[in-house]
Computed example of a mutant assay.
Amino acid sequence: MSDPLAVIAQLPGVPEAVDEAREAVDRLYRHRVLRRRSPEVSTESSLRGARASAAIEGADVPLETLRRDEVTDPIVQGALRASAELGRLGPTWRKAPRQVLARLHTVAAAGLTTDLGRPRTGDEAMTARMDGLLTLLATPTKAPALVMAAIVHAELAVLRPFGTADGIVARAAERLTLVEYGLDPKSLVPVEVGHLELDYADGLAAYLTGTSEGVASWVRQCASAVTLGVRETTAICEALQRG
């Protein structure tokens, strides 16, 4: 049986980038604050991740404004709802990814469209590629979770299956994959923060070329986003430790 994700995992520079991200996550999980305050850190990480995801879409609001619940922008609200929904969708992601994506779009795109949770019609190439992605998710692979998450993210972002809030859905699906496939089981790492700090559009443009170099570049960028997300969570832990 072919394993295309495993092939991607061996592209130039990818194994080293994935290992570096994995080691960063492992170091984070040993932080003493997480022994008792892991849920608190996860909640804060979720908030920061949602803020970053909305900022990538052009709706950049200060973190403190979010804490005061003063934001009515539908993009920001959608990112917050999608982030909050991840904890309930984990067990379904492996079994029924199409259902999960529909749910993520429903919460992410409320206020942006009335056609919630329904993929665009009339684009046979997009539909076929989406079917391929869902089949890939259901196929056993030896590839690391980070590689799978990177491909899920990129495919959803470039295919735009719903036509609205696709970026929010793509980044939420990436984070859900990192959680459910074992890299970050406690959902501590706001990978969205890392993507905000990096050249997000250029990374996706490289992926869209379809070349081995472009795909490898995107996966390496996702690994860097995880490492930057670890840095963000470490700062959260240090702040809690200081009281």
Results as ranks from 00 to 15, higher is better:
150 A>G: 02
73 D>K: 12
48 R>A: 10
10 Q>M: 09
86 L>P: 01
59 A>E: 08
191 V>C: 10
221 Q>I: 05
22 R>K: 14
102 A>T: 08
120 R>P: 04
113 T>A: 10
65 T>E: 15
169 V>K: 00
63 L>C: 11
54 A>E: 08
7 V>I: 12
152 V>H: 05
56 I>Y: 07
153 H>M: 10
48 R>H: 07
220 R>A: 05
202 D>K: 15
54 A>S: 11
66 L>G: 06
169 V>N: 05
112 L>Y: 10
87 G>H: 02
51 R>E: 08
159 L>S: 08
98 R>K: 13
51 R>I: 00
52 A>N: 05
189 V>S: 02
231 R>K: 15
26 D>Q: 14
67 R>S: 09
141 T>S: 06
14 V>T: 01
101 L>K: 03
227 T>M: 12
203 G>P: 04
18 V>N: 00
222 C>L: 12
89 L>T: 02
70 E>F: 11
204 L>I: 04
204 L>Y: 11
140 P>H: 05
34 L>P: 07
193 V>E: 07
88 R>D: 02
190 P>G: 10
13 G>Q: 02
177 T>Y: 04
77 Q>I: 11
97 P>Q: 00
95 K>M: 15
72 T>W: 15
134 L>G: 00
233 T>N: 07
23 E>L: 11
11 L>S: 00
181 Y>V: 05
231 R>S: 14
176 L>Y: 00
213 E>P: 01
68 R>C: 13
243 G>A: 12
31 H>Q: 03
115 D>P: 12
217 S>I: 10
110 A>T: 11
168 I>Y: 08
174 E>Q: 14
5 L>T: 02
114 T>V: 11
39 P>G: 07
3 D>F: 01
2 S>W: 09
157 A>L: 08
185 P>S: 12
104 L>Q: 05
110 A>H: 15
217 S>C: 08
20 E>C: 09
109 A>G: 05
183 L>S: 04
83 S>L: 04
148 M>V: 13
195 H>R: 13
47 L>R: 05
18 V>R: 01
8 I>Y: 04
90 G>D: 03
21 A>M: 06
232 E>W: 05
120 R>G: 09
33 V>N: 02
47 L>H: 07
222 C>H: 14
239 A>D: 08
219 V>Y: 06
57 E>P: 07
159 L>T: 00
70 E>L: 13
70 E>W: 13
187 S>W: 03
35 R>C: 10
45 S>W: 01
27 R>L: 13
190 P>K: 01
27 R>E: 11
98 R>H: 14
156 L>I: 03
176 L>W: 00
25 V>C: 03
158 V>Q: 09
60 D>K: 08
88 R>V: 02
26 D>R: 15
51 R>A: 06
14 V>F: 04
55 A>H: 12
69 D>G: 13
